[in-house]
Simulated assay, not measured.
Amino acid sequence: MASLNEQLSTLVENYTACDVSDALLKLQKVPEGSAPRAGYLADLTPFSPQVGRNDTARKVAAPATTFKFLPKSASPPSIATENPEKHGFPPGKHWVDYAGDFAAEDPSKAGSIIVIEQPGDQYCAVTGGIMATRMKVLGIKAAVVGGRVRDLRELQATELPIWARATSTVGTGAEAKAGVRNVPISIGGVTVDAGDIVFCDPMEGVVVIPRDLLGPVLELMPKLISMDDQAKEAVEQGMTVTDAFKKFR
C-alpha cells in the first residue's frame, strides 16, 4: 500500500483540482437538498509566489492544519479554553507559532498546509509578511486563507504558496483574533478538518479531500479522465457532446 507521501506525489504530478472534484462528485455524499461542493474552496486566488492563476507555479498537497479566527471581542469556544495546549492559544505565544505542531505530531511526516477561516464581514488581514516568514521557517508547505492577507511583496519574498479571498492594508488586531485551532472549519461552505488533504493547483484552484477518501479519489480519477479523453476525441471528430457523454460517460 502506498504511503501518504507517495499518494501526495501521485496527486500533484498527475492530476488537477478539476480531476479531484470530478472524483469527489462521485464519492462524496451530501445532505439531501444541498449543492455538492466537491471539495472546491471557492473564490480564492494565489497571492504568492505570484498574483493570479498561472501554469508556472508548482502544485502542492499536504494535510491541513486548521485555524479559526473570531471577532476581536468574541470569547473563544469552550474547546479552546478547556484544552488550550491542543486547541487554544495559551498566553505568551502568537498563533502562528503553533503552525507546525500538527505536522510535527502527524506520523505520516507529510508536512502541512495552513488553512484559516476568517469571519466573512471582516476587512483586516489575518496573514502578513511576518506570519508567512514564520510559516516558512516552520516548514509549512502553503497557506490557504478564507479571508484577507497583506504585505504582498513580503509574502512573495518567502516563495510560500499563499491563497486568499482578498487583500487588506489593515493588520489583524483591528478586528480579528485567533480563536481556536485543529478543529473543523468552513471555507466557502466546505468543511476542512485537521488532517484533510489540501491540494493547491495554481491554475485550477484549491480543493480539499477528506483524508479517508484520498485513496478512493486516486483510484477513480484515471477512469474518469479516460472517459473524458474518449469523449473529447469523439467530439473532435464531429460527435455531439450529448452523444459523446452518452457513449463514454
Rank of each mutant, 00 (worst) to 15 (best):
S78H: 14
M227I: 04
P90M: 04
S3V: 10
T56L: 07
P31R: 15
K246D: 15
T133K: 15
Q122L: 13
R211D: 07
P161C: 01
L44R: 11
G120P: 01
T81A: 07
D121E: 06
M203D: 14
C200A: 12
L214S: 03
G129A: 06
N5Q: 14
K26S: 15
N182Y: 08
Q28C: 08
I187V: 14
E85N: 15
L155M: 11
S108Q: 15
P36Q: 09
W95A: 04
V192A: 01
M131V: 13
V115C: 08
T45W: 09
I116D: 06
I140W: 00
N14C: 03
Y40L: 11
Y15H: 01
R150V: 04
I209N: 00
G188D: 11
G52H: 04
A74M: 05
D196N: 03
A166W: 13
L41M: 12
D19Y: 03
L4I: 13
V126A: 01
A234L: 12
E233L: 12
G146W: 08
V192W: 08
A104N: 12
A62V: 01
A74Q: 10
A166R: 12
I113C: 03
L214Y: 04
H94D: 15
Y15W: 03
E13R: 14
V206P: 09
L138A: 12
V235E: 14
A57H: 12
V96H: 10
T172K: 01
G139C: 03
A2N: 11
P119K: 04
D19E: 00
L214N: 02
V180C: 04
A17F: 01
F67N: 00
V180D: 05
R58W: 13
V235H: 04
A176R: 03
L44H: 10
G129P: 00
P161S: 04
L155C: 09
A2C: 02
K247G: 08
T172W: 02
